[in-house]
Computed example of a mutant assay.
Amino acid sequence: MDLTASELSQIREDLHQIPELALHETRTHDYLLGKINAWQTPYMTIKAVPAVPTAILVHLAGTRGERTIGYRTDIDALPVTEKTGLPFASTIPGQMHACGHDVHMTIALGILQHFTQVQPEQNMVFFFQPAEENDYGGKRVFDAGAFSGMWRPDEFFGLHDNPQLPAGQIASRMGTLFAGTTEIHLTFTGVSGHAAFPQQANDALVAAAAFVMQVQTVVSRNVDPVRGGVVTIGDLHAGTIGNVIAGSAHLDGTIRAFRQTDIEMMQGRVRAIAEGVAATYGVTAGLQLIQGGYMPVENAPEQTRDLIDFMTADPATDFSDIAPAMTGEDFGFLLQQFPGTMVWLGVGDPQHTLHSDQMSPDEASLLPGVQALTRFLTHRMAE
């Protein structure tokens, strides 16, 4: 018998209470493994990844076994202090499933449990992935060679929750669903000094301010406005007191775009601006641009057309087409290696956004999400 709505809710609430940051998901790993082991069948194989020890791979041998279908979920949380007031709120200070990965894991477990009760026609690989929020866990596991031999999927599918959509609704689109991203980490180093003698110092704070203003032109004057892009500087630290010229300034930010070519162009413009500002203000610039595995999430044409046609025709599924979003997801890296599709799952909390300390998904989304994706994956095996 498949997991019931109340059983899925309990799993989600259990996981919600133990959020862990990237590459440190030890309690989460043990909880997941405990569930998976309880559903052990003769056609199930579980694989560890020594290079990324919190990762879990599960292989189900199909009755026909001509192809291998992959399903991926992320398992990490965010450094956010929860303010939902829920009775099952985070028990780990300063950490929260504010992006809904507890929902993602619950859906994956629900699908997996179904196929441990009903052997799939085709082989399946379930990937419980650490470090989606940062440290690009998907790329780490791929680079470790984990997807070789029987563990290599012919296609990959994944899901992300969306609080703005009605609970249980599935949404996706042809082409790019999410943007690719690049982290910006920049330090300007000058010479500190007394505020009364600016001629004897090189002000890193002024350089940082100039950089923040100049990068506002990267998108407005370099990116096709039909395609769009984002450069955001979200963190700037400089100086210690009002009467001392800052000798260093550190900035963190992000680049986002729907096309990899645009991301690479924007990286070049950010680098050129940093170097130009440094030369103008007589400071040095230490710049790191880190994309890692955060490529654009580009849904493959064949799999995505089939998913949209199936979901649209399925009377039990609430499906909608949706515009692309500037959110980032390292599933984009895996979709560069294997054709596949990512979908949104509506979780019905329109008052709060992803990463909000008050985001509270509606658990009525869990069972419809499991059932819709189980039906689609079953259909996909017959193709």
Rank of each mutant, 00 (worst) to 15 (best):
P315Y: 04
E302V: 08
A313T: 00
L287E: 11
M295V: 09
I290Y: 04
F310C: 01
G292C: 02
V297Y: 07
A279R: 15
Q288H: 13
P301W: 04
E298H: 11
R305K: 15
T327S: 13
A279I: 10
I322E: 06
V277R: 06
G328D: 06
N299W: 09
T284G: 06
R305L: 12
I322R: 05
G328K: 06
D306N: 14
G286T: 12
A274I: 08
T280W: 07
Q291H: 06
A278D: 03
P301Y: 03
S320H: 13
T327V: 12
V297A: 13
D330F: 02
P301V: 12
I290L: 12
D321T: 14
V283M: 10
D330H: 10
T327K: 10
Q288E: 15
G276Q: 15
D314L: 00
N299M: 12
M295C: 09
T312L: 05
P315E: 09
G292Y: 05
D309S: 10
I290F: 04
G293A: 05
M326S: 01
D321P: 06
D309H: 06
T304N: 05
I308E: 00
F310V: 03
F331E: 09
M311N: 00
L287K: 09
P315L: 07
N299Y: 14
T284F: 00
V297P: 06
A316D: 11
I322H: 08
D309M: 01
L307N: 02
V277T: 12
L307H: 05
F331G: 07
G286L: 07
E298V: 14
L287T: 09
F319P: 02
Q288V: 15
G286H: 15
T312N: 09
P315S: 05
L287H: 11
T284M: 06
M311P: 00
P324Y: 06
I308F: 03
T280P: 03
D330R: 07
T312G: 08
M326E: 02
P324H: 08
G292R: 02
P315W: 09
D321K: 11
D306C: 09
M311L: 10
D309L: 02
S320P: 03
M326N: 00
V297K: 08
A313R: 01
A316V: 04
G328R: 01
F319D: 03
D314N: 11
A313H: 00
E329I: 11
R305H: 13
V297S: 13
A323R: 11
I308G: 04
P324I: 01
A278G: 02
Q288D: 14
D318V: 06
E302C: 00
Q303C: 10
G292Q: 05
P296C: 13
F310G: 00
E298G: 00
P301K: 08
A325K: 03
A279D: 13
Y281W: 05
P296H: 10
A300R: 08
T317Y: 04
L289C: 12
A274N: 08
S320I: 12
A279C: 09
A316T: 13
G293E: 02
Y294H: 01
F310T: 00
E329P: 12
I290A: 01
D309W: 00
G328M: 08
T280Y: 09
P315C: 07
S320D: 10
